[in-house]
């Protein structure tokens, strides 16, 4: 660790970890010196006990957290598409081993490939193919198709060694979110507010939404980062703050 390359903030965090006295009143240089000293002292003593409670007989025993194994997949035929934002979609899929084996026999095709397709369109039509990728038996994929307001869905299928494609499962149709003010204006809007609508939108903050204030996300992240750097590393229970 090279102390001279660290910012004052980083030095301070380290000082908190080592529980240095008077650290809040120190300048950057003083922090650097004090840390340098504390760390070389530490090397000769035990290095971690310094800021911890001395173990006493009442301390709970360290129990390693229980393991909860879960399967990778479920041996089902499925494809699910979920929107992430107006420009991004997530798809996961799986083709069951049984389906694959049956297909191989039926189509006399020992070699097969898996194809993942994404379609866009309306509630009712059969849609237009927007993307098609070769994939594995199961997995997930992020697409970056920009289709605001469109209905969109995914399909997983098998292709035999002659290049014939057969659909296995498809997702529900989902409506993608929009990222702009609609062109659609109803008549009554013109009668009630007319052109003032632009001013109302300005007051609504439409020009600043890109830098939008997130819900609680930012503040939590900030606090958690702080805690992450300050929490000591002992204990079996997680030791971070959240909400």
């Amino acid at each position: 660790m090279n102390l001279s390359e660290m910012t004052k903030k980083e030095l301070y965090r380290l000082a908190v970890e080592l529980n240095l006295a008077n650290r809040s009143k120190m300048t950057k240089e003083e922090l650097e010196q004090a840390l340098d000293k504390a760390m070389s002292d530490n090397k000769t003593h035990s290095s971690t006990e310094q800021h911890k409670v001395h173990p006493s007989p009442v301390l709970p025993e360290k129990i390693s957290p229980p393991e909860y194994p879960i399967p990778d997949r479920y041996q089902i035929d499925t494809a699910v598409l979920l929107p992430v934002n107006p420009r991004k979609e997530y798809v996961y899929w799986e083709v069951a081993d049984n389906t694959v084996n049956r297909f191989k026999v039926q189509h006399e095709s020992p070699e097969i490939s898996f194809v993942l397709k994404v379609f866009g369109g309306n509630e009712t039509d059969s849609g237009e193919e927007l993307a098609s990728v070769r994939v594995g038996r199961y997995g997930n994929w992020f697409f970056d198709l920009y289709v605001p307001d469109k209905m969109i869905w995914a399909e997983i299928g098998l292709m035999d060694n002659k290049g014939n494609y057969f659909a296995v499962a498809h997702s529900r149709k989902v409506r993608m979110p929009s990222d702009k003010i609609s062109e659609m204006i109803d008549e009554e809007t013109w009668m009630t507010v007319g052109e003032k609508i632009e001013d109302i939108y300005r007051l609504s903050g439409v020009n600043e939404l890109d830098s939008a204030v997130p819900g609680s996300v930012r503040i939590f992240q900030e606090v958690m980062r702080f805690l992450e750097t300050n929490a000591s590393s002992s204990g079996t229970t997680a030791k971070r703050e959240g909400r």
């Binding site: 479920y74 934002n85 939404l209 930012r218």
Partner: peptide, 25 residues
């Protein structure tokens, strides 16, 4: 309009490469 109050305004916070694995289950 589909949306949320998370960072970027849509579903990114709850669906990204760090947590996508939960949805299959």
């Amino acid at each position: 309009n589909p949306s949320s109050w998370g960072d970027k305004g849509y579903y990114d916070v709850w669906l990204n490469s760090g947590n996508e694995w939960i949805y299959r289950h």
